[in-house]
Nucleic acid binder design. Structure first.
Length: 413
RNA sequence: GGACAGGUGGCGGAGUGGUUAAACGCACCAGACUGUAAAUCUGGCGCUCCAUGCGAGCUACGGAGGUUCGAAUCCUCCCCUGUCCA
């Protein structure tokens, strides 16, 4: 497959790379570089930057990583750049409170976590992992000031995000203004041919082009990918918004979260996070509209495809079955967590038990849940907030809280 | 350095002495319903205790003090943010 891709014509390669992108600046330049690379046999250097403080990747990130893979498929050098320099000085990212600085050890650990995750998609043999502290820490303050001399305040302030915050009378720290410069300089240091990023990165990516020209390098091609909407279907997928599907999550979790997206959003997920051809997606859409295909089944197919990227097909199929069992038939899943409870007391108040086992956030919360009929013990609904359980060694209870929290408890000595 | 405005629960945003654990919206949780963890509707949404009552205590409106029977609300100092002037 990959060998085949490498022998594609330039036009076909362009087609392959264009799929899913929002913008390529500029297409002619990319085409020219692909042609030159084909002629000289020298692969293009494709750079993508990542934040060192958030190594938990979610499906939204994979939109970008998949595009990296496409370049890799065509034989180019993909550079996964970890912005550890940024991390060390405390990336404020947006207007959130300054994050705590990361130690070298934490950065190393985060990098390992990244590797574990991205190599589910990218080729571990050929992917280059780099850190921008490699050149940024050598630059020194004098060098940094010189770097600043290559750009103007007005051009930095053109950035949409800054403009909005100025208008909204929100603070902007000095170092935030410098980030685009650092990111742009990364491209200079790496002599990048192409940089990939989300549409929100467009400004920073373009600064890279400018700076490369300033440093007498050919300007990199900029390729932007859409930001995938989260499970709420409105805002972009992000961990802090809680609308994300993590690629390290258990198959059952991924399945459930995919099932919770709207039918409309399902097609966009098919487009951006699977390799299904657009023609198939369009056909399915019509079949659903005409009633020939069940949207829930199709959404299940999507979930299975996504899970298969990170787990084996058996696990994906099992997740599908488990979902049907729990949510459609209201049965107990097979793999309920079991916990042993050692209790010196023989009588325990139900609400306290729930809270202590983490089935409820607090005793008050447990009381609310009991009151609303969300708690079931061995299939029996518990509605009395005063109920006490008579515990004795060897007893086993199956707790169900809400639709999807299950816990089997075995009473020990 | 000066003038002015502002800092409220996860977020946005009301509230200028008491009936305010703090309107409203979002997010979140639960119940009903459903092809779905969707949509919709209903309820809930600081903690703990008692036990189930429109109960009790504790913690909470940038921070620290103070005034008062009583403060998110008034006073003092401090910290933080923005705007304008220099």
């Amino acid at each position: 497959m990959i060998e085949e891709l490498k022998s594609l014509s330039i036009a076909d390669q362009m087609e392959y790379l264009r799929k899913g992108t929002v913008e390529i600046i500029r297409e002619e330049e990319l085409e020219a570089r692909l042609a030159r690379s084909a002629k000289t046999g020298k692969p293009l250097r494709v750079k993508t930057g990542f934040d060192p403080s958030a190594p938990d990747l979610h499906v939204g990130h994979t939109v970008l990583i998949r595009k990296m893979k496409h370049f890799q498929d065509l034989g180019h050098t993909v550079i996964f750049l970890i912005g550890d320099f940024t991390g060390m000085i405390g990336d404020p990212s947006g207007r959130s409170i300054t994050r705590k600085q990361l130690t070298p050890d934490e950065i190393r650990a985060n990098a390992e976590t990244y590797k574990k995750q991205i190599f589910k998609i990218l080729d571990p043999e050929t992917t280059v992992i780099d850190f921008n502290s490699r050149w940024m820490s050598k630059l020194g303050s004098a060098g940094f000031v010189r770097l600043c001399g290559h750009y103007t305040v007005r051009r930095i302030l053109e950035r949409d995000d800054f403009e909005k915050r100025m208008k909204a009378q929100e603070p902007i720290s000095m170092h935030e203004l410098l980030y685009p410069l650092v990111q742009g300089y990364d491209s200079v240091a790496l002599e990048a041919d192409v940089e990939l990023g989300g549409t929100d990165q467009k400004f920073n990516l373009l600064v890279g082009r400018d700076l490369q020209r300033e440093y007498n390098q050919p300007a990199q091609v900029v390729l932007t990918m859409p930001l995938l909407e989260g499970t709420d279907g409105v805002q972009k997928m992000s961990k802090s918004l809680g609308n994300y599907i993590g690629i390290d999550e258990a198959p059952n979790e991924i399945f459930g979260k995919v099932m919770s997206i709207s039918d409309e959003l399902m097609y966009r997920y098919f487009e951006l996070v699977t390799d299904v051809p657009m023609s198939d997606i369009e056909r399915w859409k019509k079949e659903v509209a005409s009633g020939d295909r069940h949207p829930m089944a199709l959404k299940g197919d999507l979930a299975v495809r996504i899970i298969e990227d990170y787990y084996d097909p058996d696990q994906a199929a099992a997740a599908r079955e488990a979902f049907a069992k729990v949510f459609r038939k209201g049965e107990i899943p097979e793999d309920v967590e079991t916990r042993e409870l050692s209790f010196s007391d023989s009588k325990v108040k139900l609400s306290k038990l729930l809270a202590s086992m983490g089935l409820a956030a607090s005793v008050s919360e447990a009381n609310r849940l009991i009151g609303s009929g969300a708690v079931t013990i061995d299939g029996e609904k518990a509605t009395d907030t005063r109920a006490e359980l008579q515990l004795s060694a060897g007893d086993e209870y199956l707790f169900k809280v809400g639709k999807r929290r299950f816990l089997r408890v075995v009473v020990g000595e």
